[in-house]
Nucleic acid binder design. Structure first.
Lengths: 209, 209
DNA sequence: GTCTATAGGAGGATAGAC
DNA sequence: GTCTATCCTCCTATAGAC
């Protein structure tokens, strides 16, 4: 679940404590606005204003809008990225699905985080979008993580031998993504984690050994 | 599943045959580009160029960019909208879920249609987006349609009495939406309808009477 | 019904003072 | 490190000729 090298910005070797603080504030604002209006729908002036500096001041920290996006996505990953391993240990077998329920519950407390993901994943389906690689990385890493967990569980006999692994994983990711989108459209008016738990329960009923 | 009044454009009472043809061409192009780059990411000049006329010529047919979007969404609904009733009869009970599998299969043959929906649904989560009402309408009408089908099926004893109807419907819509997004991200590299069929089969196993 | 031309504004990025 | 001022491009929309 680590972040690929291409997203690591190499802009500043080291900065002052105040500089780091301003930088973090800018990145938080950028993530919020990119989530709300998308990358294309957000202007540097908007980000600068809400972060409390001028557009030129912002561009002192990040040389371009794309650099800002890249840094923001990296920052998200670093700080509270999709931590699926609560205690640093990757859950295996069905425990991985329980970890996803926990993730959904944590996300339910942070709509802006969900919104960033939903908005950017759709906008960046375009292969020329600056976050396109980021989206592919999200799917790939989540798929790889779940695949490893299920394969491990199969070896330990947690899954029925005829479990359609690929399908199970695709449906799981789809349900999670689709619920997030629906939850945002419905103004967070239902319990996302609870609904997802129902899905997981159903899969356990069907495929648990 | 009819389209709400607010999306009906009232621009032209009647137009020439050639005018209708140009109009349809413009709308097809607009749907394509809005799907690929979103509403915000698409310029009138782009649409005009690919439709083979000038930007001013385009604005002769549609007074504004928003009017173009509105007309395009209405056009989509009219021509090949999410026709769930193949023969004009609404399928009831589990047949409604089978109709959704058919819909997924038909959509698999038209990636641009899927892309328009995925892109716009995410972009228009913003309450100020001109297609915001359109997104809410999509969820509402699909939910209402499925609810009616399931309630009918329950009365006829097709569903177990303890079926969690709301959850079942939310998960169904989420799975469909999530699969579409994943399918686009993966370059249409799996059978969307087949995966969705697996989901429906699982729900039948769990809740069919 | 379609065009050219252009107004009027917003967005990204740069230059240079402090 | 932050600012003001500015350049240049792109966008939406309008005006008016053909």
């Amino acid at each position: 679940m680590s972040f690929p090298r291409q997203y690591r910005h190499t802009i500043t070797g080291r900065a002052s404590a105040a500089g780091d603080e301003a930088r973090a504030r800018v990145l938080e604002v950028a993530l919020d606005l990119f989530g709300a209006f998308g990358f294309r729908g957000t202007s540097l002036a908007q980000v600068a204003q809400r972060a409390g500096l001028s557009q030129a001041g912002l561009l002192h920290h990040f040389p371009s809008k794309v650099a800002l996006l890249t840094a923001a996505l990296e920052y998200r990953e670093e700080t509270e990225g999709s931590r699926l391993e609560a205690d640093g240990v990757a859950p295996l077998g069905w425990a991985a699905f329980d970890a996803l329920i926990d993730l959904a519950a944590r996300n339910a407390a942070r709509p802006p985080v969900v919104r960033l993901f939903v908005t950017l994943s759709a906008e960046a389906l375009d292969a020329d979008h600056p976050a396109h690689a980021w989206v592919l990385h999200h799917y790939d890493s989540l798929t790889a993580w779940l695949t490893a967990a299920v394969e491990h569980g199969r070896e330990r006999g947690e899954f029925r031998p005829d479990t359609p692994v690929t399908t199970l994983i695709r449906l799981t990711i789809a349900t999670l993504d689709g619920l997030q989108q629906q939850w945002l459209a419905a103004d967070q008016d239902f319990d996302m984690a609870e609904e997802f738990r129902h899905f997981v329960d159903g899969q356990k009923q069907a495929w648990k050994n």
